[in-house]
Nucleic acid binder design. Structure first.
Lengths: 350, 350
DNA sequence: CTGAAAGCGCTTACAG
DNA sequence: CTGAAAGCGCTTACAG
């Protein structure tokens, strides 16, 4: 079976204590004894038992990447996971992935958690991604589990996203996207997205602010339809095109909504960007297949993921030290789906 | 700090052994003593130290989901991961995710592995997904690490995929896809995909076999161009359209190639499926945004992932018992990108 | 410089 | 039915 320190001691003809000292390079020892012990270690293929280390140090050297209330990980979350893993692996830590669903109204004590988050010691800390609610934060506070939050899709009070969190500034990014469209000559700029979601509302606010300041004609579809984002984009587009004085550009709340808008425009033979320019949000790779290529807003998931890992590492080193949230800027990725505003009023379609 | 069994014993006024027996329900004990102990446990919030259990049982109750030689997980792999996790969680096991890159020509001993796969005891077994080579299997054999292989993107000898593996029958699926196109009246059916990849070659063979038996006119683009799959699809399409007697249907080696084909066709104004029908492979969600919706071949990643987990569980229970590979059928998902073959010969475009 | 012994948190024969 | 003791794999004062 697996060699233990005892086997090494016997083989090298020394005591357990000596082997331990030599392997840990703690205290004095004879170089000759050292050589003998290391030979025995090599011969037996001995390695310190991981569980023992973890038991002693009371850590698992493992961090949980928790995807909340989502069916699948999208490429943005995937990139965050990979970036997290990269940073943590350098410190010898592993990342375990798990998904979890819960309602925002459940009392903290009643939230059913995966075992790794219910039991003590399986993971040292948690990275919260996907969609989360305030009640889960309470669970972690109470059990003394350090966590760090990717806060953009958080539904609780904004105050809770001010510490131990990473957030990208979607509001400003949408403001800037509208200014970009205005520079291209667009006067009638639409927004499409269900603002019942706080994150879509923030993007809407950025849009509305810029549109107001630039005295553009805002045209909005922000209803709370119970459909998926792609379908939302289609329905929104149908409605926008019914408008007597329709938009020449659309800012979609995310890339999926943009894909729906795109589908409907293509379906109706509306040219992009000839007749309508389109901007998405998220810059997710999945949508790189759209033709023309979609102008979108990147949130730099690699940076977010790496910072999340570093922030958690700092909390693990000193659990008391809470940290202010880090805000990351986004970046408009200009591609082919935006162009100059068409000169003359176009015929209404629909 | 955290309560230990000692604290419980003191609080309940009994010995360690008694507490242990009662908590494990092993041996006889007085019901009254049992109540006192359980009260103490509740009062102190005592829970058995996970690391101790793992040390004793010499397991980690953790399985590694290893994505080989890929930058990101696609939705197929994601679904496999989630399905794996579901099955394993029921057994109280966790899934840790990691990515890893290595060359097929490296000697087993020289492959650099993440710590969780280099050290003993961190994970109990490995699920291999993504793209893998034979040399890594050797590493796991040598260290006695049970593994299970999602074998479709394996580059080594096919014999190595005959045990402890799960594989979907892409060959037959492509054969059937061609027959489906033939039933729609297509006589000139093309295949697009780089057959330097063994998995694309298998799909090509299925295509070629059916085309031969049905006496269709095969038109193939199988060159080893060093470009990504989407670009491959575009280039292949450009070439197919240059053909004096071009295809009326295209079977793409995977959904990404199909997306490239689709892009190029749309770009050139070729109607799908009016002029050319198109079939992808993989049925990945990312491509559901294509318009018209893409007919594709589903590989049922949920089933694959669950079976992978179950197979690994069986190996963990009895490491000696190697199992024959499980072959899963695929399923053609008929959607809007295929239609009847156009009646008359169409003008050559390009 | 090295070993015997106690200890970490828990279980399990073995006495009583 | 219950407790004292040995043991898991390892480290760390404490003697020598």
């Amino acid at each position: 079976m697996k060699a233990t320190i005892k086997d090494v001691a016997k083989k090298a003809g020394v005591s357990l204590a000596t082997v331990s000292r030599i392997l840990n390079e703690s205290g004095y020892f004879d170089e000759e004894t050292g050589r003998r012990v290391r030979e025995a270690v090599a011969a037996l293929g001995y390695r310190r038992n991981v569980h023992w280390t973890r038991l002693k140090r009371n850590t698992s050297e493992t961090v949980c990447f928790l995807l909340g209330n989502r069916d699948a990980m999208n490429s943005m979350q995937m990139r965050m996971l990979v970036a997290c893993e990269g940073v943590l692996r350098e410190k010898g830590m592993d990342v375990v992935f798990t998904g979890m669903r819960y309602g925002s109204e459940q009392r903290s004590a009643q939230i059913a958690r995966p075992r790794m988050l219910a039991e003590d010691g399986i993971v040292d800390g948690v990275v919260l991604t996907g969609q989360h609610h305030a009640n889960l934060l309470g669970v972690f506070e109470r059990m003394g589990m350090p966590y760090v939050l990717a806060a953009n899709n958080f539904t609780g009070k904004p105050a809770l996203t001010k510490r131990n969190a990473v957030i990208y500034d979607d509001r400003t990014a949408c403001d800037e996207a509208v200014r970009y469209l205005a520079r291209l000559g667009h006067k009638r700029v639409a927004f499409a997205g269900n603002i019942a979601y706080p994150w879509f509302r923030r993007r809407y606010e950025g849009y509305a602010e810029a549109a107001g300041q630039l005295r553009l004609t805002p045209i909005e579809v922000t209803d709370d339809w119970q459909v998926n984002s792609i379908e939302y984009g289609r329905l929104a587009t149908a409605q926008l095109l019914r408008h007597p004085n329709g938009p020449t550009a659309v800012l979609a709340a995310n890339d999926e909504v943009a894909a729906g808008v795109w589908k409907e425009l293509v379906h109706r033979g509306v040219r992009i960007p000839g007749e309508i320019s389109l901007i998405g949000f998220g810059d997710r790779e999945e949508f790189s297949i759209l033709e023309p290529s979609l102008t979108s807003i990147s949130v730099y998931p690699d940076k977010l993921g790496a910072e999340l890992a570093r922030m958690l590492l700092r909390r693990l080193a000193d659990p008391a030290a809470e940290e202010a949230a880090k805000v990351f800027p986004c970046q408009l990725m200009e591609r082919a789906s935006c162009g100059p505003a068409p000169r003359q009023l176009q015929a209404v379609r629909g």
